[in-house]
Design a binder for these strands. Structure first.
Lengths: 208, 208
DNA sequence: TAGATTGTTAATCGATTAACAATC
DNA sequence: TAGATTGTTAATCGATTAACAATC
């Protein structure tokens, strides 16, 4: 189980592998071969084996991969049991769709706070939690130590919040704002840029 | 301007390049060097020049890249003026956030129809358009020829709709459902999988 | 044991970086 | 002309694919 170095390309595929194994487990499939899995994923058996080898998880020669085992092992590598404390800022359509559509707990997080700037929304209950005013963000962070923040505000506000939150100890950001967030050592950022995704779809249609 | 072959990695960066040049144009910046641009993007001058060289667009030695020109040229390559006809299916939180947050016209598309299954929503007006019942999808497509579909339904429905829409001539899909859509020749798909993105963020926190 | 399938090594392919001649 | 900066070539690095020995 030496995972001193795992290629970036492998890590990029890790969430999808994990999702497939969880689904297979749900469907009571007990084992699967690299060939079958590659078929489902639209990739090659070689890549599947190379990836799992790099991740340090083991199949069994002549048998394949044990679904429950892989599900557990990949979950460990990802750290889904850590349930990092998360807050969300911005409860417009985007914020609300994240709140309603994502199962935080199954994906390694626990939601502990919801923030907005709009006075009329403060106190409204979402997911069993009141919307708090953004002005109380500092105090909230000093008391509750959120580790991850979901940025669902306009771009310029997201960029400001980013630095503010870093100084408050937040280590990870899920950025839906479309704003360009400067990378800082010690902070990790996942961007969801819908405009860029739409642009790329246009390009793909254009060349076909 | 030979763009017989453009590397995938370059194409993956194309939307972001385009966005940066559009922003610079808005800010009345007239020219920029690969070094300055690389600084803004968090990459290397070498990569910037290599990419633009592959795309067939030209800077000027000793000067840099003309912002307005690049904006125009990259827009041409992407095909933003095509304004492909798009429909959206599903007007839950996710669908509504796409409808309210995306400027279709600026990114190569034109929205021509909104669909849902829920009776109580039919007729409600969003973005100046009535929500139509999904049962009228076939007829609508045969009359209006949508080229792209945004899937904001639950996964299983998205997968069904995908094949239905392909048979109706739809060529591109923006898949927010989280469902795994089988690739078909002649169809292009851009997936937005929020669960996978969250999983990867968890992993990144876990290793830090 | 025989058959199946992994894990790993080697070969190929693609992407990034470095360096510099070309040229505006 | 001199200075700046591109475009392109070559070198390095990383990812994918192919092949097969190891082994359950």
């Amino acid at each position: 189980m030496d995972r001193s170095y795992i290629p970036d390309a492998t890590l990029g595929r890790l969430p999808r592998y994990y999702r497939f194994f969880c689904d297979l487990k749900e469907k009571k499939v007990s084992k699967i071969s690299s060939t079958q899995l590659a078929e489902m994923l639209g990739t090659t058996p070689s890549q599947v084996r190379q990836d799992f080898s790099a991740l340090g998880s083991f199949g069994q020669q002549g048998y394949g991969y044990n679904v429950a085992q892989m599900c557990h092992d990949l979950g460990q590598i990802i750290g889904v049991d850590n349930h990092y404390r998360a807050i969300i800022i911005g409860t417009g359509n985007l914020g609300r769709s994240v709140l309603s559509g994502i199962q935080f707990y199954n994906h390694g997080f626990r939601l502990i706070g919801i923030f907005d700037r709009k006075e009329s929304l403060i106190g409204q209950v979402l997911k069993g939690m009141p919307i708090r005013h953004i002005d109380g963000l500092d105090e909230f962070c000093r008391e509750n130590f959120p580790q991850m923040a979901i940025l669902c505000t306009p771009p310029s506000e997201a960029i400001r919040l980013y630095d503010q939150l870093i100084s408050l100890g937040v280590k990870a950001f899920w950025n839906f704002s479309g704003g360009e967030i400067p990378r800082r050592p010690g902070a990790v950022v996942n961007d969801i840029n819908l405009n860029d995704s739409l642009t790329s779809l246009c390009y793909k249609m254009n060349i076909k």
